[in-house]
Write a protein that binds this DNA or RNA. Structure first.
Lengths: 135, 135
DNA sequence: GTGTTTGCAAACAATTTGCAGAATT
DNA sequence: AATTCTGCAAATTGTTTGCAAACAC
């Protein structure tokens, strides 16, 4: 049976305030403001737990660390090659894609994920990115 | 300047014999048959190098380790939730998807990846998977 | 009271890196 | 001879786990 925990609630509440999709470590650093003694292990445990019961979703876009999204509806993501931030892409999810792929494939397909790559608006506008590009 | 190395050639040649997309460790274990003294570091270094010069591509499907594919043409992948193998999905890549997403997005999009999830044929047929499912 | 969750530290897995010697040009 | 590449081991990063005490029911 699942018992209430203030830390878990705070983690979920924090995720819901963000439109970027923070990593466990970013959650940890921010939650520490409210719970100075919280440990990284607790953050990882709660993020996994929340993802496993379908209250949040875990996103892997190919960088070293996983990101977490309070939105569990199927949707797609963007990963910024420069700053590593992850954002939502607001095009409708295409459930037909699974069937289309299924026709060409022997195994059983039940979902898919799409990640777009490029440079986010903030990085495009930052001198940091421009300097790097022209040097 | 890039110098020839027998290890690097062997790694590339090995990758080309496989249609699954092995991890660095699988490459290491197999290359060891030909180069018993090769180290995992060398395998990692060469896989990164080959990927960075565009001779192979690195695939991240959300499991803990990266997979490597000798095919650098844009195409999509399947990841088996049961055994962790990665395979190609033979539907045409859709470059128009980038433009479609771009219309709804402020940053600069230049590519995308799609990964399908499910159970591969081998696992579907294995008693191992069936037992797990019904127990 | 029983069972779950926490903080802490240690363990773990995947990957990267520093270095001295070997191989390639 | 100059430079790149290798094997080895140690370091780093992201994540998981064992445990005793704290908390929720």
């Amino acid at each position: 049976m699942l018992k209430y925990s203030r830390q878990r609630e705070a983690i979920k509440r924090f995720l819901m305030t963000r439109t970027d999709h923070p990593t466990a470590d970013t959650v940890y650093v921010n939650i520490k403001k409210e719970f100075p003694n919280i440990s990284l292990g607790t953050v990882y445990r709660n993020l996994s737990l929340l993802a496993s019961i379908g209250e949040i979703s875990k996103i892997s876009c190919g960088d070293s660390s996983d990101h977490f999204d309070p939105n569990t509806e199927p949707h797609y993501h963007f990963y910024c090659r420069h700053c590593g931030s992850v954002q939502d892409i607001h095009i409708p999810a295409n459930p037909g894609l699974d069937q289309k792929a299924q026709k060409t494939f022997d195994g059983q397909i039940d979902s898919h994920s799409i990640c777009f790559y490029g440079i986010c608006k903030t990085c495009l506008e930052s001198s940091d990115y421009l300097n790097q590009k022209t040097s």
